[in-house]
Nucleic acid binder design. Structure first.
Lengths: 225, 225
DNA sequence: GTCTATACTTGGATAGAC
DNA sequence: GTCTATCCAAGTATAGAC
């Protein structure tokens, strides 16, 4: 059968307009997910947002679920790049807290985290979706873990806390905050929380040796674990 | 019009079987939400689980959404009672961590938290649902806040941390963990996290004065804030 | 109060014209 | 590659018999 959608398809042809249509559908999916939620993101709704025909969803992606995953991949990629750049520029644990707060704000506005939240939400209905979404979250936990290890790796606190578990907790917390903020449309509590986190991070950084502050570029060459 | 469903309805008649039917539908809703997820919890699916007719959902509750909220109310009430009893019996911050871990385990098995998570998930589709669910989460944040204040209220840590924000964070974290654990069906990471939390709480309680340990019954009579 | 039957709507997915 | 037209499944909700 060889459905076009799944992953690659033609896609990599010369400069065909097909790629543009695919991209437009992906963007429309993100926008629809953001404004209408998971349940409101049907092939018809996506096509309407994109100003395209509903049948194109199935021609290019095979199913709505596949398009949903493609959309998640797209935002994840973009966000990961931005996170990495922001984290690389941050100094110490208080710098990280600042980055987290700023990015949370961006995410709520841009709806990138919403896409993930909606997909997690909808994952319980479609059988295979949960595992697929889970696989796409794993890199975020790893990224958080590496960032943590690099920031407070050899400090007393770093030795006390298992980085993997803390990373898992941070991702879970971030996700939970997003969902709560999404519920009543009230992001003030979430923002107050990030403000407090920044304050506490400031306190902590004063107590800790400023590891990672001036050796960011050396991080990848270090094998100490 | 006076739809039967919304909140009260006849309900409080003598010993009518109507109440039993309502209860059966509520229980079936919880069970279905747990096994099929939000999207799979239709009036038909609920009725099938209950061994009843689909039309009864609308007769007794007016709409599926109302029944969903009734189910959330039911589990919330039950869980709140269990939480309060468990917390009242706990000693100090390490006792609380133990309670949290045990209850998390129960919740995953019993699916009480799943109901909330699914409803939060689905809330983005139905217009008014988000606010309704949010209103039902508020008591949990308050409960957590009171518990925190009572446990480490006058300790140095208690003075440093704003209880309201930490409570908000804890609820968000708990929710996020539940959603992540639900995703891939892997609860081992979550349980490892709770084990670590217990270990850390043990460390902290050794450093803090054991406030709240022997004055739980006096908590409600205290006005100090 | 509970059932059967059904009207109405929406969404996934495909066939086939262009 | 994109469109129109259409099939089919599943869901909400109501009417009316019992």
């Amino acid at each position: 059968m060889a459905k076009p959608g799944t992953t690659s398809h033609v896609g990599a042809r010369s400069g065909t307009e097909s790629a543009e249509t695919r991209a437009a559908l992906v963007e429309a999916t993100i926008a629809t997910l953001r404004t209408e939620g998971y349940a409101g993101t049907s092939a018809r709704a996506i096509a309407r947002t994109a100003g395209l025909n509903q049948a194109l969803v199935f021609y290019h992606f095979g199913s709505v679920t596949n398009l949903l995953l493609a959309a998640l991949d797209a935002t994840s990629l973009r966000r990961m790049e931005q996170y990495k750049a922001a984290v690389a520029a941050a100094r110490g644990i208080d710098g990280l807290a600042e980055v987290a707060a700023g990015i949370f704000h961006d995410d709520l506005d841009g709806g990138h985290m919403s896409v993930l939240a909606e997909l997690i939400a909808g994952a319980s209905s479609v059988p295979g979706l949960g595992a697929e979404v889970g696989a796409r979250i794993a890199p975020w936990i790893e990224f958080t873990e590496h960032t943590l290890a690099d920031t407070l790796g050899e400090s007393p606190l770093g030795r006390l806390l298992p980085a993997g578990e803390i990373a898992y907790a941070i991702v879970a917390l971030y996700l939970g905050i997003e969902m709560l903020a999404h519920l009543d449309g009230d992001r003030s509590r979430a923002e107050a929380l990030f403000a407090t986190a920044q304050r506490l991070a400031g306190l902590m950084s004063a107590l800790l040796p400023e590891r990672g502050a001036d050796r960011i570029d050396a991080a990848s060459t270090e094998g100490s674990h």
